[in-house]
Write a protein that binds this DNA or RNA. Structure first.
Length: 431
RNA sequence: GCCGGGGUGGGGUAGUGGGCAUCCUUGGGGACUGUGGAUCCCCGGACCCGGGUUCAAUUCCCGGUCCCGGCCCCA
């Protein structure tokens, strides 16, 4: 009998969940502050939902099975199709629609750094507006979440525009667009020589390959965009519209101030359904894979329902984010540092129960002594469980209606009025 | 699906072709009855699984599995 944890899945203990809860609640609170509403959907969908826009490659990486009713179903491999299904199922929702969700998603692939077979993915989308303002808003939300997690200086947003890339390839007379996109997408993993060779093998001229290498090579500031591609854009200026739009998006993000943003022509986001900007957030040391990614996808609703609904959104998994938060030392369980362990002695049972009730009524976390050990063992136990504060309650305190507060970290101690303690203690919501 | 490196109690380790295995830590219990968050005592707990070689395998070989990392892919 196999009873172990399944490969690529995680068990979560309280010390894991505490910082994870904080991560999620920061993301959700930030989305709420932007006026986004939370949605949810089943963890199981018809496999057909993903056949609409995906190839066999995706289908081979799903947890799929035939259920007892003969239906081909699959555990959610991504959030967007379900989100769009919820939207197209209702035609009465006023636009723009701002939605977020936090599902678990699954994919059957080999686990490695930053990738597991099951993870949480925070998603946010804006439907119904096709403007650079909407593009910027979704990036601002993404940036604000990361900033609110204490990662302000630890990441940057890399942005690109698929339409502009299409235009560039067209000007360079490159026909094999999909294949060349894939090569560009893998640029950061290949050497320059390899990159040039691959391009030439796929029908790109020597000059075209050189130009591509030049623009893809490293991210740059938005104000340099025009000069960076002047050689391609030339006098015709066919790319001017896209340059202007991308500039506007970046300017809004920049003035909002939640994230540093750079243009990165190597950000392509696979061979998916994007129809405008695409973006990813990377840790600024370049140590991990992308923290989050998204873009504009104006055609998906039509593919699913024959409705034209412009859309822009992003998804953010919890795995890479956890790695980054640990590196930046903002992945911590602070809860016990501001909660109380009650140590009671003698015939004070009723009084210490009353103290516990009053603390909890005031939103203060405390644990009661459940056994009848000596004081030293109670203190030892509280210390080993990570509690910073101990409330000693004995006959003396009972008589005076006080508690003795011992700070295990400072090794200091004083007798406190209960009301006084309640006033100065940290409430659960403030952790 | 493919490639590389690993696998000794919950965590970290020592060690060996031959007495069911070292130490630290953690966990449980006790002494201890208002500060011992100490100290002392006791206890529990491991060689990933299967096959092979061998008189004998935790140790050597093969396969699997899981973990770590990489590729493919990234929806």
């Amino acid at each position: 009998m196999k009873v172990d944890r399944i490969k690529g899945f995680r068990d979560q203990y309280p010390e894991d969940m505490e910082p994870r809860k904080k991560m999620f609640s920061k993301a959700e609170t930030t989305a709420e502050l932007f006026g986004f509403g939370k949605i949810d959907y089943p963890s199981l969908e018809y496999l057909d939902l993903y056949r609409i826009k995906s190839g066999d490659e995706l289908l081979s990486q799903t947890f799929s099975f035939t259920d007892r009713g003969g239906r081909e179903v699959t555990m959610l491999p991504e959030a967007t199709p379900s989100t769009v299904r919820l939207l197209t199922a209702r035609k009465d929702i006023p636009r723009p629609v701002r939605w977020y969700s936090l599902p678990k998603i699954w994919r059957y692939e080999e686990p490695q750094s930053g990738r597991l077979r099951e993870h949480f993915q925070f998603n946010a989308d804006i439907f119904g507006v096709d403007t650079p303002e909407a593009d910027a808003e979704i990036i601002n939300l993404a940036g604000s979440i990361l900033s609110n997690l204490g990662l302000k200086s630890a990441f940057e947003i890399h942005i690109n525009d698929r339409v502009m890339m299409d235009g560039i390839l067209k000007i360079l007379e490159i026909e094999n667009t999909e294949r060349v996109f894939t090569i560009i997408d893998r640029f950061r993993k290949t050497s320059r020589e390899e990159f040039l060779t691959l391009l030439k093998e796929n029908g790109v001229s020597g000059k075209g390959a050189d130009i591509l290498l030049k623009i893809v090579d490293s991210p740059f500031e938005i104000q340099d965009l025009k000069s960076k591609i002047s050689e391609i854009n030339g006098k015709s200026g066919v790319l001017n519209d896209r340059i202007e739009r991308l500039s506007k998006t970046c300017e809004i993000v920049r003035s909002y101030g939640s994230a540093r943003i750079v243009v990165d022509f190597s950000v392509i986001r696979g061979i998916s359904y994007y129809t405008g900007i695409v973006f990813e957030a990377f840790d600024s040391m370049g140590q991990f894979r992308s923290i989050l990614g998204g873009g504009r996808y104006d055609n998906l609703a039509r593919l699913m329902s024959n409705q034209d609904i412009p859309a822009v959104g992003f998804g953010m998994g919890d795995v890479v984010l956890e790695l980054l938060m640990k590196r930046e030392q903002v992945w911590a369980d602070n809860r016990k540092e501001s909660s109380y362990a009650i140590c009671s002695m003698g015939n004070t049972g009723k009084y210490s129960t009353e103290v516990a009730r009053k603390l909890r009524e005031n939103g203060i976390v405390c644990i009661d002594e459940l056994s009848s050990r000596g004081l030293s063992q109670q203190i030892r136990s509280a210390e080993s469980q990570g509690y910073r504060y101990v409330l000693i309650i004995g006959e003396r305190e009972k008589e005076r209606g006080t508690v003795t507060l011992r700070d295990l970290q400072e090794s200091s101690q004083s007798e406190k009025d209960l009301d006084d303690l309640i006033r100065n203690a940290k409430k659960y919501q403030e952790f």
